[in-house]
Every structure is written in C-alpha cells, then in structure tokens.
Write a protein that binds this DNA or RNA. Structure first.
Lengths: 198, 198
DNA sequence: CTGTATTTTCAGGAAGTTCTGAAAATTGGA
DNA sequence: TCCAATTTTCAGAACTTCCTGAAAATACAG
C-alpha cells in the first residue's frame, strides 16, 4: 500500500469496517482512498495506492457507482476518468442511507405486507403474523421519520439532531401553553399523529 | 424446512437480509424462527424447523447470545435450555443498535481520534485529517443524538419519531414566542448547542 | 480506417466462510 | 460415584466470495 501513514491507517480501518457491512474490504478501501484524496483520482492511481489489480479496481468502482457514491470527472485532453467522493459528507451519508433503504428496507416492507395479507393456516402462522405486524409498524415508524427528516436542509437537520431528546421538553412546554386549563390533559399524542400535509 | 408457510417465508427473507449485513444466513434464520415462535424453543426444535445440523444451531445461538439478543429460560424438570427473543420489539432494536455501535462505531471513533492527534507528515495527510475531522464530527453528532434519544421511554420515543421534521416548526414557534421583539433574531442555535445537563 | 490508450469482462485459482459429523465436555439425577 | 441427556468443540468437506491476468471491448487521435 503506497500511501502516507494517516491515510493508510484510515484506509485499512475503513476496509475492515466495510467488510463487516455487506461491502467487501477492497471496495471499502477504494472508497476510503477517494475520500481522503486531495483531488479526483483515476483508476490507475487507485491501483498504485492500494497495490491491487487493475481489474479489481474496475469492479470496485462499478460497485460504488451502482451505489451512487461517486462523482466522475473528465479532465481536458485526458481520456481517463477521474473519481471522487462528494465533498459534502452529509450528502454521502444521505445517499448511503437511501440506497440501503432501497435495497434492504423496502423489499422487507413489501415481504411483510404480503405476508400480513395472507390468511394464516395455523395458530403458529397466526402468532407469526402478530409479530410481523409489530415489526412492520416499527419499520414504518422509522422510515417515515427518516423520509420526513431527510427533506430538511443540512443546517436544520444538525439543529434537530443536536437537540436530541430535549425536543420532548419543548413539546411539553408547548402543551402547557396551548392546553386550556380544564381542557384535556395534553395534545402531544394528537400532534404526533398528524400527517405531514401542512 | 419444517415450518408453516408464513413463518417459512419470513425466515427465508430474514436469513437473506442477515447475510447482507455482517450476520450469516443461518444465524439470521435462527433468530427469525425464535422471533415468530409462540413459545421458547430448545436447540433441537430449531434443528427440526430449519433442517440444519445440531452443531450449527449451537454455534448460531452462541453468536446471538454474544449480541445479547436472546432470553434463556429453564423449564422445571427439563435439562434443556429454551430460547426466545425479547417480547418487546423496541428492546430488540435498541440492543441491536447498541451492539453495532459498540462493535463498529466506537472503534471507528477511537481510530479517528487517534489519527487526528497525529502530526501530518505530508500535504496528503494534512488534507486527509481535514476529511477525517468532518467524519468524526458527523459520527459524534449522530451518536450523541442516539445516546440522548435512547434514554426516552418507548412511548415518548414513538411520539418524537412520529413528529419527524415537524419538530422544527415547534421550535420556530417557541422562538417566536420567547424572542422579545427587538431582541436577537432567534435562539434555535443556542438551544441546539446546550448540553444535556438539565 | 488503424493504432494506441484505456476500461471492462470473465474463467479459473486463491482465500475465506460456513456447515457437518464425530468426539469431548458438561450437567444433574440416581 | 456412574450414567445418560445435552451441549460444545473442532478438523476438514462443501460452498461462496474475491482477485487476478489475459482477452475482449471501447474510445478516440491521427
């Protein structure tokens, strides 16, 4: 591996992490190299830095492109393609989550829905459906939250995340302010169930 | 595979999903079987349902235990151990996230911190550090959010998630109410940067 | 066109993982 | 203590994934 020490350490770690998720080590390393590089790199530069075969790099780049994780650029009078990761790291994470959702969550939701439509032929299947229903609800809650929050600009998203659970306090405050004395105890639940059509 | 149709379809899908994440197919299937089962099962019952070897089940259960994902129970006058997944699916997800964080995120954060302490010996390494710093900040933002939100009871967590980005609106409202006319434009940023010591 | 630079594909070998049956270890009752 | 039930371990077979070099495809300048 032909990289300065900090880059190398990062690339090795990132490759290791990649291999724990569905992504293979080498693909992880390729991404890491592009992520820390000062400028777009062509395939041969990646080969040189990682010391792996040209064809392996070609396949890795293909894979990363299929995840929408790369930017490509042509340089004047040069036939080679140059690759980078997006500058904005938030954009990278959004893409990553979107793609994983598309490949893993969406198919799971559709399998769950399909299985919940079927008529159970046994007690075991009936009980299974109850469990699957819980799972379906939870996944929907999480994906709806994500779909909603994902629309925010990064700035606002950061604010919201920084706030963490303190949001709940703000809501309690709101409740206290807007619930008339003698009225029903609080409307957190109601607010929580509105859908985003405002 | 010796399971009623809905269970079987779910188990197959779940195994497939497991194998996309670092978990192997069989381990995923074992978890799925326990998840939909009406009662705790012993190892041999899992063998029978999945049609895999006893030793494979034994290793799979070990693996799941190391993730804290199983409840074990003894039945009076029976030497066998019986396994289930927790009833509360939120508890399952919390455990899953906690464990992945412990195994993947925490080590990554510590590698990043270590690399950020080092003195870069080249321009490339200097630029790499800048990128790693962005990554470190983002991961910290996300993990702090999670650490904070994870403390909430499930009920409140559901409220907060259901609300999604509408929280931002509530915050704007709060701003409008508490910012004196003529005072500074808004304190969203200030609120967002407080730390959870209240 | 032709020739060169570059990228992609792919068969098959290397490396890694998962699974099994047999054997060893553990457990608790008699 | 011994024994039978149960669980765990582990060497190697079976399977999967990954990587390479060679060949094919593509792209474009002259």
């Amino acid at each position: 591996m032909n990289l300065p020490p900090i880059c190398e350490a990062f690339v090795l770690h990132f490759g290791e992490m990649g291999s724990r998720w569905g992504i293979n080590r080498t693909v992880g390393q390729i991404y890491a190299v592009l992520f820390v590089a000062e400028r777009p790199l062509c395939a041969d530069e990646v080969v040189e830095r990682l010391g792996i075969s040209r064809s392996n790099v070609s396949m890795g780049l293909k894979e990363l492109q299929s995840w929408n994780l790369l930017r490509q650029r042509q340089i004047q009078g040069d036939r080679r393609e140059f690759f980078t990761t997006p500058d904005d790291i938030y954009a990278i994470v959004r893409t990553l989550v979107d793609e994983r959702k598309k490949r893993e969550i969406d198919p799971t939701l559709s399998v769950l829905r399909e299985l919940l439509m079927q008529t159970p032929g046994s007690d075991e299947d009936k009980h299974a459906q109850a469990r699957l229903r819980e799972m379906h609800e939870l996944i929907e809650l999480l994906t709806n939250w994500y779909a909603d929050v994902q629309k925010l600009e990064t700035e606002r998203l950061i604010q919201l995340l920084s706030l963490g659970s303190k949001v709940v306090k703000v809501l309690e405050l709101k409740d206290r302010l807007f619930t008339l004395p003698g009225g029903k105890a609080g409307n957190l639940g109601r607010v929580a169930n509105q859908n985003s059509n405002d």
